[in-house]
Design a protein around this nucleic acid. Structure first.
Lengths: 225, 225
DNA sequence: TCAAAAGTGTTAACTGTACACCCATGC
DNA sequence: GCATGGGTGTACAGTTAACACTTTTGA
């Protein structure tokens, strides 16, 4: 046996935002010692694909989604992290829009489930640790990069954006100050559309302008909460 | 052959700070196609060790240093990143104190060399990309975490600290403002010692207080340049 | 008219930035 | 004295944070 070769998997922490709560996708494992217990979605790395391709494939199989925010998180290589065989896993974290919280065809509530991050059951192996690492990373990144927009639908109101930040960071924010701060960055463009179906004054719908963001960052702009 | 098994290496970007310049350790490869060309220090992952242990082992073999700041950077898994056999590498980045820029016994200038990041020769495989990724990560992290102190000797002057930031971030800073900002954080403690051997007024030597930093961060303190 | 959220205005405290300045030391 | 860096003072501009307030809408 080649001593330089190692069993490699990818596991993804897939975050969503719904009902004002940050959620994560967990799946039920169907084989081996961990049968019937909840864990993060993952699979073996195949020999003809990159890690990013493998994570992307798992994401598409589970949710039907493509072209999603997906980034490496950390590699977990503790010797005893997996019972029996030694397996190293490369963890990813993904952000999906709440209007796309579909599960792939064939997935039932029994197999896969969106759960609030405040209410995650115990997970297999070191998946709890992976989840905590992802949460910490998300909290940190959301303050310095406009990745939060990946959790919202295409068009959103300022309050929805604020609620997202409040849920992710577990804090409360001042509405007037939040909206001024966001507007001053010039990253939100009005769609000239209004909210509908609400029993109060309809808010303006905005969308995030990635092109403006890229232009600004080239000029040295830094995004801060 | 087991299709889930993959050849794995670790490669480290080891930064040092000397002569007011940010430097990186490169080594000459001694075998295979890449013989005689410069690259990042690395090795195979062995079956009985974690990735962190492997990176730490390489670091110790090359520099003789232990207990050094060492962190995962990114996994590089492009199919064609290594000629011939497919090899996946987990890149690390390390920060070492300038007063410890020794090379391990047996290393000569021919085998290993500290070079300014502004003056790095072309490296093998995708090592240029790994270095660029590490530089970007260092620039980002140094603003939000007090990792810069890992590049300085135990005792340092405020100007040395400022020069470090200037070199890493490639900017110039205002001396009075920089010192006030640093002092206000209460992370530096005076050693009651002065610089010696300088032909101008001797500066106070400070050291970074990790215990204070940990206490502050627990209270929600965030380090910003 | 009430509740809910959309939005605007105001102020005081705090921070960042620029730059003028004096101090100590060795040559 | 002069060059070099150590170290302090200050003042304006800009930002943050807290919160009072008016507006719009559907039920």
């Amino acid at each position: 046996m080649d001593t330089h070769k190692h069993a490699l998997t990818v596991d993804s922490v897939i975050f969503g935002f719904d009902d004002g709560e940050l959620k994560v996708l967990i799946v039920k494992h169907g084989s081996g010692e961990s049968r019937g217990r909840w864990g993060l979605p993952g699979d073996w790395l195949k020999s003809g694909e990159t890690l990013e391709q493998a994570a992307s494939r798992v994401l598409q199989n589970r949710t039907g989604l493509r072209d999603i925010f997906l980034q490496q998180l950390h590699v977990f290589s503790a010797l005893e992290r997996h019972p029996g065989e030694r397996i190293i896993t490369v963890a990813f974290f993904a952000l999906v829009r709440s209007d796309a919280h579909v599960l792939a065809a064939g997935e039932s509530e029994m197999d896969a489930r969106w759960v609030s991050v405040r209410d995650v059951p115990q997970l297999i192996f070191d998946h709890d640790e992976i989840l905590q690492t992802a949460l910490a990373r998300l909290k940190h990144k959301v303050r310095h990069e406009p990745i939060g927009f990946n959790l919202l639908p295409e068009k959103f109101t300022l309050l929805e954006l604020q609620k997202l930040y409040e849920a992710v960071l577990d804090i409360t924010l001042d509405k007037p100050n939040f909206r001024r701060k966001m507007m001053k960055m010039n990253l939100l463009v009005s769609t000239n559309e209004k909210q509908s179906g609400v029993s109060y004054r309809a808010a303006t719908l905005y969308r995030f302008d990635m092109a403006v963001y890229n232009r600004l960052t080239e000029q040295g702009f830094v995004f801060e909460v």
